[in-house]
Amino acid sequence: MNDKKGMIFSDTFKPIIIFIMMIVLMFILFSFFEYDKGFLTSRNMRMLFTHMSISAITALGLTYVIAVGHFDMSFYLVGCLAAMTTSYLNKTDLMMNSFMLGNIHAFVIPAVFAGIAVGCLWGLISGIAVGIYKLDDMVTTIGTGFIAFGMAYFYTKGSFIYDNFLSSGITEINDAKWFTIPFPIILMVGLYCISFFILSRSKYGRCFYATGSNKVAAVFSGVRVKTYIIVAFIICAGFTSLAAIMTTAAQGVGNVKASLNFLMPAYAAVYIGIAVFKKPTVIGTFFGALFSAIMLNGFTLMALPFYLGDLIIAAAMIIAIIASKIDWASIKRKKSVPAPTIHAN
């Protein structure tokens, strides 16, 4: 029992230290090579984190689904439907007749929530299909996702929605600042804090992870496994919908393809986190998203073509998956004492 404190310390903090070192190293590299391009300016940092917030919120939602041991291939498509729903409601006449809250029309708020609600509804459908009817998660969510994507076209047959975007105040979602900190960053930090407490510090988190590790044992322990799977899918779809609406606000146009490129960065962030923390965690996902964001930002400043960004992050994800498959502990153990074996007779 002597090494108890030491064990808890190293288990929790070692991965965080690894991450911080990785990120500090990248900061130093980019500041050194791109000092003249303004990497370390506060303007660039604000931009970096604002960009990051969108992929980070999506990845945070996905973390829940990975935590319950499933995959979601629908969220990035569901985001498109959510963004189009909000854009379409934003265009209605009701909008301009509503009263003002500061410099936004009050109706923008229900429009945003309606978009998120539609996203959550899709999460509910996927969750029921996977959790209760035990359909294969990959194939089912590809199906539900593309139904959502198809439905996103219903509003305008796929053309952009420009109406009311500049006048309704919806762009404030992206532009608003609080003590010079952009609203997306505040939103991201808020959601990460809440999720950290849910997944790592609460009884609900225990149930999410138990479901992901051993569904049968979780059932025998009285965990409502089906409920947790459904909730995970709803959170994933809901967070992605929010991120898609934020993208729409940033672009200032309702676009059917608003969140079509969210898939890979979200998985990359989650799996870079898993590589270091050994399981899907909120902190791991945050660092994963930050890692990708710094790389993207640095490469953009280097004036590398945009498509190289995806390529490099995808490569980083593959390396992360390989790293997470290597059992470092057992390699160390082999050097000192043989691993304990369990005999089942």
Partner: peptide, 24 residues
């Protein structure tokens, strides 16, 4: 192995899993 325990989680995680109300 299949029905009783969450293998890759610590002892305390397993013990408290069925009555999380008591410690939260």
């Amino acid at each position: 192995r299949h029905e009783g325990q969450i293998n890759d989680e610590p002892i305390y995680f397993n013990v408290s899993l069925s009555n999380l109300k008591r410690i939260s």
